[in-house]
């Protein structure tokens, strides 16, 4: 009886399809070399499992945990609902979970993509670094008035006037230029409440154009409310109640128009 040789690639394909015992029986018909090859492969798999088969219950490092926590991103119902006069899409999207938003964006691929978590994370990082500054919270102070606006406009490459948030009880301290996450230029404007709480407005130009829903990202006690307005990504960040941020966001949105 002659045995038909079988190619290794063919055995690999069979191994993908057949349960182990059927595979072994099938290979037996092709001679002992085919079976020996299978034995060798199984030996390889066992060795790889013993070498690299790490403990799957090993706790995740804290840095992964905090990333996951910051990824728990929500669209915000109440805020967006109150702002619906301002935003065409807000009311529709606000009530949807991100999962539903994903489904929606699959069905409507032309809709501008929401800003990534990365954008808000950049705003939060910048807030954390500079709002803690006592001596130099800003690069150019608000009392330089026109100069501040001109400077920010030149650096951002887009007209921008720091919004006046005195109605919200926030006084403009000034602004600074900083690198955006993707190598672009970002600007940060800092405001302060009479109690000393600081709020930052972070702006960076975005490659895509379009308006999006408000999104919210929190990290520790900091909350960032962010959205895309035309070619600008905007984020306001503070360690303040969300209700306060809502009002500020509405004011900022109106003034940036």
């Amino acid at each position: 009886m002659t045995v038909r040789p079988i190619a290794e690639t063919e055995i690999l394909l069979l191994r993908d399809e057949l349960p182990p015992d059927e595979l072994r029986a099938a290979l037996a018909a092709h001679g002992e070399d085919a079976v020996a090859l299978l034995d060798a492969w199984e030996g390889q798999d066992r060795a790889l499992g013993r070498l690299y088969g790490a403990d799957m219950d090993e706790p995740l490092p804290d840095r992964y945990r905090s990333l996951l926590a910051s990824g728990r991103l929500h669209s915000i119902g109440p805020v967006a609902t109150r702002l619906q006069g301002l935003r065409l899409l807000a009311a529709v999207l606000a009530l949807l979970s991100l999962g539903a938003v994903l489904g929606w964006s699959i069905a409507h691929p032309s809709r501008p993509a929401p800003l990534g978590v990365d954008f808000a994370a950049g705003a939060i990082d910048a807030h954390r670094i500079f709002s803690a500054e006592v001596a130099h919270p800003v690069e150019v102070a608000a009392d330089q008035g026109v100069h501040l606006a001109t400077w920010l406009t030149n650096r951002l490459g887009q007209p921008v006037t720091p919004p006046d948030l005195t109605k919200q009880g926030l006084r403009l301290l000034g602004g600074r230029v900083l690198p955006g996450r993707d190598g672009s230029t970002a600007v940060q404007m800092m405001y302060q409440s009479p109690q000393g709480a600081r709020l930052t407005l972070y702006l960076a130009r975005q490659p895509a154009i379009g308006d999006t829903d408000f999104q919210i990202l929190s990290s520790g006690s900091l909350v960032s409310l962010f959205w895309r307005d035309g070619s600008l990504g905007c984020a306001i960040t503070a360690s303040l109640p969300v209700a306060v941020l809502e009002r500020v966001a509405a004011d900022v949105y109106r003034q940036l128009e």
């Binding site: 990333l67 991100l98 699959i106 929401p114």
Partner: peptide
């Protein structure tokens, strides 16, 4: 490896909003 997984996690979360299923 752990740094690589961290980068992977960051990129995954970052792209989540634009994920096509």
């Amino acid at each position: 490896a752990d740094d690589l997984v961290q980068d992977c996690l960051e990129r995954t979360l970052d792209r989540l909003p634009t994920l096509r299923a």
